[in-house]
Design a protein around this nucleic acid. Sequence first.
DNA 1: CATGAATGAGCATTCATTCAT
DNA 2: CATGAATGAATGCTCATTCAT
Lengths: 191, 191, 191, 191
Amino acid sequence: MRTKDLNKKDRIFKAALVLTKKVGIAGITMSKIAKEAQIATGTLYIYFKTKEELIHQLYVKLETESAHRFLQNYDDSLSFKKGIKTIWLNYLKHRIEYFEESIFLEQYYHSPYITQQQKEMAEDMKQPVYRLLETGKKNNEIKTQADSQLLFLAMLGFIRELAYEHIEGNYELNEDRIEAAFQLNWRMLGS
Amino acid sequence: MRTKDLNKKDRIFKAALVLTKKVGIAGITMSKIAKEAQIATGTLYIYFKTKEELIHQLYVKLETESAHRFLQNYDDSLSFKKGIKTIWLNYLKHRIEYFEESIFLEQYYHSPYITQQQKEMAEDMKQPVYRLLETGKKNNEIKTQADSQLLFLAMLGFIRELAYEHIEGNYELNEDRIEAAFQLNWRMLGS
Amino acid sequence: MRTKDLNKKDRIFKAALVLTKKVGIAGITMSKIAKEAQIATGTLYIYFKTKEELIHQLYVKLETESAHRFLQNYDDSLSFKKGIKTIWLNYLKHRIEYFEESIFLEQYYHSPYITQQQKEMAEDMKQPVYRLLETGKKNNEIKTQADSQLLFLAMLGFIRELAYEHIEGNYELNEDRIEAAFQLNWRMLGS
Amino acid sequence: MRTKDLNKKDRIFKAALVLTKKVGIAGITMSKIAKEAQIATGTLYIYFKTKEELIHQLYVKLETESAHRFLQNYDDSLSFKKGIKTIWLNYLKHRIEYFEESIFLEQYYHSPYITQQQKEMAEDMKQPVYRLLETGKKNNEIKTQADSQLLFLAMLGFIRELAYEHIEGNYELNEDRIEAAFQLNWRMLGS
DNA sequence: CATGAATGAGCATTCATTCAT
DNA sequence: CATGAATGAATGCTCATTCAT
């Protein structure tokens, strides 16, 4: 017996993503996914019990993958500043390179699909970075009084906006601008 | 003859907003809007030619209204810092008090409904604040090298995230935290 | 008190006729009639209890009027041939000049609106001509054996087709052709 | 996979035809068709993209089929009179046996569905008979001066009316009456 | 009488899901 | 496993009719 073709699941996910960018989560239909993935509608239901489950599973996959990407190349031996910068750049890169995925995630967040449990899961993903900031503060690397959660929000929101305006063509990024942006954020940490 | 009730358009808009919060733009249907607004489906089509137009008009209304709110209480006689703070607080307040509206606007932004023209309109709304920062820089009130567009993004993204986490209950705001947040942003401007 | 404006009823009828030509009976709606007649929808219901009644009344009016036109200029003192020709020409003229009306009548005939009673009424309208042929036969003016009902059908069908092809531009009529057509029909009567 | 049932298209056509007779083209709805054909509404849209296309295709099918029936049993070796009679009877038979179809075709002709192209196609269908008459005239089989188009109209219109009154029960046909009718028409051709 | 806003049943069409092959 | 035809509930929208003004 052939095992369920795992690639097919990925092709389905990819198709859903492509469609989200084109028409938003609102516009996705099972038959459009099937056509984009070049399979029959019925086949979708072999891999996913319902449309809802397809969307849910895609969400979990994306959320997990992106959490991984945030910590790429990071390890404890790095200095605090280098560590922060690594993660900062990872996040910016992620928001730009995986823009399709980001759109899906944000739309999912305010869609009928999301559950409380998943909101909590999303919050958990932020823990590693948050903890890094905590440590930095304890070791006096961060001089501002502001609590680390606030600092984290400031970083996150900034990068998000940065990536968005870059993609939309309103503020195109290059090495210099990225460096300037990071400095701006770094200064906020208060040294 | 029953006269065309102008309030009704607002009741329809309100209903659409309530539904967006509940089920996302994806989940809105004309019959749900009608039920929420306590009118007949057919009546919707007296005020809006199609569903698309209803959504479009709501977008324009919200975009315009929010632009107004950003500049509330602001006038040229204020010192630069006070001016910035006024706007900063306006924006935070707006993102919190008009959360429903904000969700709609963001979903609209990545929906099949938005047009290029509307993206440009949204960009235009930011001009006043952007110009204020430009002036501040020229007058040496901002000491950082970073260009004002970047500064603006940093502010916007931060506030956005702040409001979001407040609403979601992950970082509840109070006067002290708001003050701290503003100081963080202000420091970024470089004094 | 002003009496119900009789002209308005005619304006409504005219509007219905214009629309039938444009979009067929199938395509007529009350609001289209109202717009074409330049009155409000509600007003239609002052003059006609329902859409069905409007259509019914229009039918009766047209059927009656056309019956009149068939016998125009005819009187008993005319010779048999002249009498037949008068009616023959009347009918041809009617089918051409009142083409709009004819279309309505034919569509009505196979629409959900018609009743058995009306079918009988339509049949009755043919009586005068039919009787003329009967008389002609009794007086030996018609030599063919065929019964007068058959002769009548032959005339009616021919004229109908003639008018139709003229209107459609497939066989444009002029004095000569009309004369030729009548001769053809006349010869059938058997002299 | 369930294979696409070609019979189903015919069942749908039949249902549309039955309904046309009952309520006219005006009264046809997709759900009525579905119910009459004993399938689900959605299924209709597997076989026809829109209601309009369903109606169009039915028209083309009927127009083509009836053209075939007109020429049944006819071949060049027949004498002129026998040839004409064959076609004449075919047409009468067609108008009676395929009355439902005829009604559809006539209603279609004055419906919003018809296109100029289709009107021309309908005109083309008449060519073979028309040509036969032309030949007859050239060979002196027809003695009247009248042009063959006129003769053709006379035949067509007569048969049409004949069939109609037969169906409506106003002039019931039998062998004798049919023979008499044909003789009437034949005499018109002028011998 | 006249208006046209309001109504809700009904229409054409779509879409998630099932099922025969 | 895979297919796509079949299903029927649900959608956006229209339309005959009513009703407040």
